[in-house]
């Protein structure tokens, strides 16, 4: 009787462990399948011209993605420039100024909630905020949309990183007569520097592939991104969308896969590179 029970318990356990292993394998195989498909289909499109020429309408020779790549870099860097300074200050507010705990708790909560905001709504928001009043789509509007997505992410990582700085450091700095401002910026932020950079770069990696907010803000153009402030700006995610959904031509699909490969490699490199370069700070969390 006793033995039989143990047998069933062990059996259930083995089935469970097998299922667990299967789940992990399934998740990682899914990733491998997707990544290898992107590599296989995308590598056919790659050539020097693909990286040097701007995109052109179907049928024109020597079409490439150079304009979209440049536009994406401009939009993403613009977003980082717009979002990072206020987001770090906001993080400082949450971590360093604790004299109004209720307000900071509410703000932390809203930041967490904002991190889960559907990105398509951010696109709508920026559309009515910037595109409608200014009368034209622009790369800048795209940057603002991505900045709104980055803001809460950087804010929360800043707070987490600053929280890890030992209190003795702040007290020592204040004791030798530095002001709060100096202490925060020169001592606390500097000692958490690695963590802050990691947070910013990971947020950057995350938004650089965002598509939905760019559909209504940066739009797309088959030209070089010279109208960053005043006109539709080409970018990679929308190029991929346009080429794969709005075009029946195999050549466009192939170019779309090429662009997909480029952006996947960029995002993963940024992600892995950041994690490796600033490793010990990540482990401390």
């Amino acid at each position: 009787m006793q033995k039989k029970k143990l047998f069933w318990r062990k059996l259930a356990n083995h089935i469970f462990r097998f299922f667990s292993l299967l789940a992990v394998l399934l998740a990682t195989t899914a990733m491998l399948v997707i990544v290898t498909h992107v590599i296989r289909a995308g590598s056919k499109a790659l050539s020097l011209n693909f990286f040097l020429n701007p995109s052109k309408p179907y049928g024109m020779p020597d079409s490439g993605i150079a304009n979209a790549l440049l536009g994406s870099i401009m939009i993403t860097l613009g977003a980082a420039l717009l979002a990072t300074p206020p987001a770090i200050c906001a993080g400082i507010c949450l971590s360093e100024f604790r004299d109004r705990p209720k307000i900071t708790a509410a703000l932390r909560f809203s930041a967490n909630v904002m991190m889960g905001m559907p990105s398509v709504l951010v696109g709508l928001f920026v559309y009515t905020l910037i595109v409608v009043p200014s009368g034209h789509f622009s790369g800048l509007a795209g940057s603002v949309a991505l900045a709104i997505i980055m803001f809460p992410v950087v804010m929360r990582t800043t707070e987490d990183m600053l929280d890890m700085v030992p209190y003795a450091l702040r007290e020592a700095s204040l004791a030798i007569g530095m002001t709060r401002t100096h202490t925060t910026l020169r001592i606390v932020c500097r000692s958490a520097r690695k963590g802050l950079i990691t947070g910013i770069l990971l947020a950057l990696a995350r938004v650089s592939g965002e598509t939905a907010p760019l559909l209504f803000t940066a739009l797309f153009a088959d030209s070089w991104p010279k109208d960053y402030f005043s006109g539709p700006t080409p970018n990679m995610p929308v190029l991929i969308t346009e080429y794969s959904t709005n075009s029946p031509f195999a050549a466009m699909h192939q170019a779309g896969w090429g662009a997909a490969l480029v952006i996947t490699v960029l995002v993963l490199t940024l992600n892995i590179g950041t994690r490796i370069m600033f490793r010990e700070k990540r482990h401390a969390t």
């Binding site: 990544v35 592939g209 991929i240 969308t241 997909a260 992600n271």
Partner: peptide
């Protein structure tokens, strides 16, 4: 290793998932 692989899976842009979904 597996933990990092899963983290990376979360980093792939959603448009890539969409494109893979459409064509594969």
């Amino acid at each position: 290793v597996l933990g990092h692989a899963i983290d990376l899976l979360a980093a792939i842009p959603s448009v890539i998932y969409g494109m893979w979904g459409l064509f594969v």
